[in-house]
Amino acid sequence: MGEQSELRLGGKGGQGLILAGIILAEAAIRDGKNSVQSQSYGPEARGGASRAEVIIGDEEIDYPKVSRPGVLLVMSQEACDKFAGDLERGGVLIADSTYVHTIPEVDGVVYKLPISLAAREEVGKEMVANVVALGVMARITGVVSRQALTEALLARIPRGTGELNRKALDLGWEMAEKILH
């Protein structure tokens, strides 16, 4: 079994995290890798706890769930409280500081960025916060290439929203760029 990157995206239903997980998994395939995406959600279409998981690797992926994510994105305080303890040693935790105010002690690197706020103020739609988050994650972790991510994103979104989504992705990428340097 080769190296695998295990990612978990946690937040509330309606934040588009499952779609974000799908786009990540598709981007990985475009990069020529293997990937699986799974999810868990409450029965409510909006507002309940939501979790998407993605595993990316070069070889066959057997167990499809993530127990110790190397990359953890949290977009709600509840998700942060629930999942921070699962972070793999030396892993990366990305928190949307719009909604996550306190982060427990973790053995890894924590990046705090106002993802939803930026989506709202700079793209004009908080709805695309998930896409901003994708840009942030890709830039910080390098699990997928920027080109593959862009292609995967544009193939999944509704017609006519290409520009908006591209803008959101670029915004995420730049926010990460700033925090890294």
């Binding site: 598709e26 395939i29 475009r30 020529g32 292609e151 995967a152 544009l154 193939a155």
Partner: peptide
Amino acid sequence: PLKGGESR
């Protein structure tokens, strides 16, 4: 199919 670059 995955649009654009689906064939690897």
